[in-house]
Structures are given as structure tokens and as C-alpha cells.
């Protein structure tokens, strides 16, 4: 018995160590490197990183609904092989394989798809996700637009990456003309002619968009004044302050990615804290689809047109 024990015990431990060493050895196996190919496509993304491809991207994974919309807008929808659960536009996007949520993408799924490029957003970079993907040898392009012109630039960039420069240029030109149509008509307005606008992304607690957001830019382009242009980014604000600033127009975002209307219902209700504002009294409270108001994609111009109608219904019909 004693012999048996003395022999088997070290054997067991040896076996364990062996398994571990083997596991590490397998993992550390080197992958052979290929010489850098001559580049034909070169762009700089919003993080200032240069992306070089030797041929247009054939396989694209998008990590955000806005990026998915851009890919389809430039006519490269057939090259999209991965999208998030929230990518619902255009309807064709739903036939593409999902790689889970926007904030929790499944990295295994992305790598398995073996894409030529991955279209990420600023948020992914902040969470360290882009670096993780790059460590795995993927080409990550980060779209982090801060203005409408940045969005147009992103569309052009995606067009270049997919080889669809012409389509992208058409989309950009169309968008630009629609933006110009509105800005031409609002440019001459005096301060007194610009209504005070409150944009509500959630009601309890009250969340709004301050300066440095698209909404701020859209409100200004549409000929209004954001009552919260003194705060920065997407922020939570005090309901009382919002009421006291007496908005003349209130735009309310619908529930994210669904048909929920609770924020809108709350604000138009009889006992709403906003029932003393000009917007409430004059019927200036409007519901806007979250997919339009929150995505930095080609449909941002539709959001601008809606805001223009809400803010200056007399000019834009």
C-alpha cells in the first residue's frame, strides 16, 4: 500500500503540472507573419489612427446601430457579416448575424466571423474593447463623431473602406443639401425669433442633451435655443430648473429601440410638472423616435428635419 501511494502521488502531481505546461505551450504557439502588402486604401479614423487596407473591405462587423446604418447607406450592406442586437434599420440588417449587445459584444463571435474591419464607437474605445480586438489582430475603425460634419466625414470614410466612394459621395451630397435647405432658412433669425427648446431623453430623473451633442447642433440648425446649452454632454438635470426655464418646445425621445412612450405620456399628462410651460399650453410637445434622435448615422438629417418642423412649424411644413 505504502509503495503504491508513494509512487502514485508524485505521478498525479506531475501529470497536473504537465497538463498546465502543455496548455500554455499550445497557447503560446507563434503564428507566422506575412509581409505587409502594398496599400491601396488608407484612412484616418476618429481616434487619429491610420487604417490601411490592400483592397476594399469584404467582411464588415458593426458594433453600433449607427454604424450599421452607414454601411447600408453607402451600399455595402451585403458586406456586413455581423451587427448588434439593436441594429433594426434598414430592415435588411436583421438578416445579418448578431454579435450580442452594443455595450456587451461577444468577442468570440466577432473573431470567429474573421472580419476585414470592425466598426466600433467611442464608447467601445473607452471600455477597452477596441484595444482587446486589436490585440487579436483585428482591424478596428472607430467612429466617434462629435458633429454633423463628422458624421458626413464618417460616411465618406466608410465609403472609402468599402470601395463605395461614389455612393458615399452621393449620400453626403444629398444630406448636405437637406441640411443647407434648413440652415438657409434659419440663418437670418434674430435671437427673439428662436424658440426655447427642451430635449428630453428620459423623464425620471430628467435627462437631456447639453452642448457638445448632436441634439444641441440640430436644435441650433433648426432655429431654436437649447435651454440647457450651459451643461455639457448627456446629463441629468433638475426638473424644477427645466420648468422655470419655460421651454416653448419640448422634444421627447421615445423608449430606446421600442414603441414605449412613457416619457411622452408623463410630460403631456394633466398633472405633469410641465403643465405651466409655454410648450405644454401651446401644444409644443413632440415625440421623436429614439432611433432617429440618438444615432449618429445618415438618418440624423431626418431628425434635423423633424426638429425644424417642431421648432418652426410656420416655415417647415
Amino acid at each position: 500500500m505504502s509503495r503504491f501511494r508513494k509512487r502514485v502521488m508524485p505521478l498525479v502531481s506531475l501529470l497536473l503540472v504537465l497538463v498546465m505546461v502543455l496548455a500554455v505551450a499550445v497557447g503560446c504557439g507563434k503564428t507566422e507573419e506575412t509581409p505587409p502588402p502594398s496599400t491601396t486604401i488608407s484612412v484616418t479614423d476618429d481616434l487619429g489612427k491610420t487604417i490601411e487596407l490592400d483592397k476594399p473591405a469584404e467582411k464588415i462587423v458593426s458594433l453600433a446601430p449607427s454604424n450599421t446604418e452607414i454601411v447600408f447607406a453607402v451600399g455595402a450592406g451585403d458586406k456586413l457579416i455581423g451587427r448588434t442586437d439593436y441594429c433594426n434599420f434598414p430592415p435588411e440588417a436583421s438578416s445579418v448575424e448578431s454579435i450580442a449587445g452594443y455595450s456587451t459584444p461577444n468577442i468570440d463571435a466577432i473573431v470567429l466571423l474573421d472580419p476585414d474591419i470592425v466598426l466600433a464607437t467611442g464608447a467601445h474605445n473607452q471600455y477597452g474593447g477596441t484595444a482587446d480586438l486589436e490585440d487579436l489582430g483585428l482591424t478596428v475603425v472607430t467612429l466617434a463623431p462629435e458633429s454633423l460634419s463628422d458624421i458626413l466625414g464618417n460616411i465618406t470614410m466608410v465609403g472609402t473602406l468599402t470601395g463605395n466612394d461614389t455612393e458615399a459621395a452621393q449620400v453626403v451630397a444629398d444630406m448636405q443639401s437637406r441640411i443647407d435647405f434648413i440652415s438657409d432658412r434659419t440663418a437670418g433669425l434674430s435671437e427673439g425669433q428662436k424658440p426655447q427648446v427642451l430635449h428630453v431623453t428620459w423623464h425620471d430623473p430628467l435627462w437631456t442633451a447639453g452642448s457638445g451633442t448632436f441634439i444641441q447642433e440640430i436644435i441650433e440648425l433648426a432655429g431654436g435655443v437649447n435651454i440647457f446649452d450651459d451643461v455639457t454632454g448627456d446629463v441629468q438635470v433638475d426638473t424644477d430648473t427645466a420648468v422655470l426655464r419655460n421651454p416653448q418646445v419640448i422634444t421627447v425621445v421615445s423608449g430606446h429601440g421600442s414603441a414605449m412612450r412613457t416619457s411622452y405620456d408623463y410630460i403631456i399628462a394633466e398633472d405633469s410638472p410641465f403643465n405651466i410651460t409655454d410648450a405644454y399650453i401651446s401644444g409644443g410637445i413632440h415625440l421623436i423616435n429614439a432611433d432617429l434622435a440618438c444615432r449618429a448615422g445618415p438618418r440624423v438629417v431626418e431628425a434635423l428635419e423633424l426638429f425644424a418642423k417642431f421648432i418652426h412649424p410656420e416655415t417647415f411644413v
Partner: peptide, 18 residues
């Protein structure tokens, strides 16, 4: 197999599992 499969097995799943 595709290079993605190898990458997932060797550089994602193995280290994660170990």
C-alpha cells in the same frame, strides 16, 4: 478551418478557460 476559429480557440478561449 478559418483563421478566426484558430484565433478564437487559441487566443480567446484557451486563456479564458485556463
Amino acid at each position: 478551418w478559418s483563421p478566426g476559429v484558430e484565433k478564437v480557440i487559441l487566443h480567446l478561449r484557451m486563456p479564458r478557460i485556463i
